[in-house]
Computed example of a mutant assay.
Amino acid sequence: MLRYRDGDLVAFEELYRRHHAGLYRFVAWRSPRADWVDEIVQDSWINLHHARSRYEPQAAFRTYLYQIARNRLLDLLRQQQPLLAAELGSGTDGRDVFDSLADAAQDVVSPEVALEHKQQHDSLHLALAGLPSEQKEALVLQQFCGMSLEDIAAVVAAPVETVKSRLRYAMRKLREGSLSEQR
């Protein structure tokens, strides 16, 4: 990012190559509307471009990029709150772009394997959807984006101890849900 800040456009290509899939995954898991995902991701890269001259490394680059995306999502949520509430209450099935991409990307050997993968995916998505927003966000950043506690704390603007608590409660709820399903 420092090279990009200083005008090296090839450095941007490398940043994009390294981070575009993770950013997309993060936004897809967090966005309540599938049609927002592409917009948020594109706006994040555009905002990064506009802010490049002011970039000062205070955390990992990925943390900085995800903060930009999270802020854009929060902006959209604030702007669209009444519209979003109406749409979510009108029978939206909750599937998002990530679900479609994950389903399409599976290497299916047989219909039985396809069904098993779909059931596992649906169970995971349902379990995560049942978590409070803050816990889900922390868990997705840790488990699916590979972020450290410190990076998560920077992205969500919360103390590390708060992030630890959110992760602990999320894992407890997921375990409790798994145990109740087995009974």
Rank of each mutant, 00 (worst) to 15 (best):
R3W: 05
G7P: 13
G7S: 07
E13T: 12
L15E: 10
L15R: 10
Y16D: 08
R18Y: 05
H19K: 09
H19V: 07
G22W: 00
Y24S: 13
R25V: 04
R25P: 04
F26T: 06
R30D: 03
A34I: 00
A34N: 01
A34W: 00
D35R: 00
W36C: 03
W36L: 02
D38I: 01
V41D: 00
Q42G: 03
I46E: 07
I46V: 07
N47P: 11
H49G: 09
A51T: 15
R52L: 11
R54F: 14
R54N: 13
E56K: 12
P57K: 12
P57I: 06
A59N: 13
F61S: 15
F61I: 12
R62I: 11
Y64F: 14
I68K: 03
A69V: 02
N71S: 15
D75C: 10
L76M: 06
R78T: 14
Q80W: 01
Q81S: 14
L83M: 12
L83G: 07
L83A: 12
E87H: 07
E87C: 03
G89Y: 00
G89D: 01
S90A: 13
S90F: 02
T92L: 05
F98T: 11
D99C: 10
D103C: 11
A105K: 11
V109R: 15
V109G: 14
V109D: 11
S110N: 03
P111V: 02
E112D: 10
A114G: 10
L115P: 06
Q120S: 06
Q120R: 10
H121C: 03
D122V: 10
S123N: 04
L124E: 12
L126F: 04
L128G: 05
L131T: 03
P132E: 04
P132Y: 02
P132L: 05
Q135K: 08
K136V: 08
K136D: 13
L139W: 06
L139Q: 02
L141I: 01
D151T: 02
D151Y: 02
D151W: 01
V155T: 04
A157I: 08
P159N: 13
R168C: 09
A170Q: 06
R172P: 13
K173G: 06
K173N: 09
L174Y: 02
L174V: 04
G177M: 00
S180I: 02
Q182S: 10
R183N: 10
R183L: 04
